[in-house]
Structures are given as C-alpha cells and as structure tokens.
C-alpha cells in the first residue's frame, strides 16, 4: 500500500532498494554464470540498464518473439536481425513536460535498454513482421527455407 502525499525524500523516492541491491551483488558474485539476459556484470538495481522480459515460440514455419515494453512507443524501439541473432534496443525517456522534483515515487525503469537473443534458426529478415500493442512487442519471423525441417522419403527396395 502506498501512502501519498508523502514527504519529499529524494533519496528514498529514487532508491528504495539499496539493501536489495547489495544482496543482488552478493548473489551474483556467488552465482557467477552468465545468462544472455544479463548483458554485463555491471547491471545493478540502481543502474539505468534494464532488459525487457521476452518469450520465444518456435514452429516449423516461423518464430514468434514477444517482449514487454510498457511505456514505449513503436518509434522508440529498434529491431535488428543478423543471421540468427535478434537485437531489440531503444530508450525509454521520461516525459519532458514534468519536473523531476514532482516525483514522489519512481519504480518504473527509464533509460536505454539493449537485449540480444539467439533465435532457434535463421530467418528471412526481410519478411519479418512487428506488431506493438498494449506495451507488448510481437515479432513474427518466417524461417529461411533451408532452415525448415524437411521430410525425406526413402524408397525401400
């Protein structure tokens, strides 16, 4: 439950999770095996970097990728495909017509994001389709013909 108005505590409003940040660093030090989601070891709670949550679905014809990007507009999202590497990047900006001092609580993430994932197979980048609705990016990526599974019939003599 959030009570407001609350006292204007800059420090408190911007970084309520200092302890958790410390804990996170400790845990990362203990479990130092990288995942593609965590692009570099410097990603911290209080840092500006964040990576969107993503789902990947595979079928014999195409791959569907979904990413949660609330608060972004479609013009702020950049999608790049190189071979079977998909990169989604962009910048979530704070509204320019508001005063920074007016914020009494900021839990949402701002700043640049960048995430690269490896797709299950190579795709036809020129035939890729993107749709952005309710803060969810959905990409439909048709597979290259040679990447599709083929059925081979062997004649038994």
């Amino acid at each position: 439950m959030v009570n407001f108005p609350m006292k204007r505590q800059r420090e408190g409003a911007m970084s309520p999770f200092t302890e958790l940040d410390h804990l996170q660093r400790e845990m990362n030090r203990l479990f130092d095996v990288s995942f593609p989601r965590f692009l570099d070891g410097d990603t911290t709670l209080l840092g500006s970097q964040w990576a969107p949550a993503m789902d990947v679905y595979d079928s014999k014809d195409d791959i569907v990728v979904k990413a949660d990007l609330p608060g972004l507009t479609k013009d702020e999202i950049e999608i790049n495909i190189q071979e079977n590497m998909l990169t989604i990047k962009g910048e979530k900006k704070k509204a320019t017509d508001v005063r920074e001092d007016d914020y009494v609580r900021t839990e949402r993430y701002y700043g640049t994001f960048h995430r690269t994932i490896m797709l299950p197979s190579e795709i036809k980048a020129e035939a890729a389709k993107a749709n952005f609705k309710n803060g969810v990016l959905e990409l439909t990526l048709p597979k290259k013909e040679e990447a599709k599974p083929k059925q081979i019939t062997v004649d038994v003599k």
Partner: peptide, 28 residues
C-alpha cells in the same frame, strides 16, 4: 545463474497476482 534486477512484475506463476510498478508525481 545470475539474479535479475529487483522487479515486482517478473515472471509470476500462472494465474498469479502481479503488483505492478508505479510512478507517482504530485503538483499543486
């Protein structure tokens, strides 16, 4: 594994309740 940034709305179980993140600003 590496622990993710602390976020309220990360990967809950199916049918779970998510506490969404919020920004609040106040003017006169």
């Amino acid at each position: 594994m590496r622990f993710d940034q602390f976020r309220f709305n990360k990967s809950p179980e199916p049918g779970e309740t998510i506490l969404p993140v919020v920004d609040i600003r106040e003017t006169d």
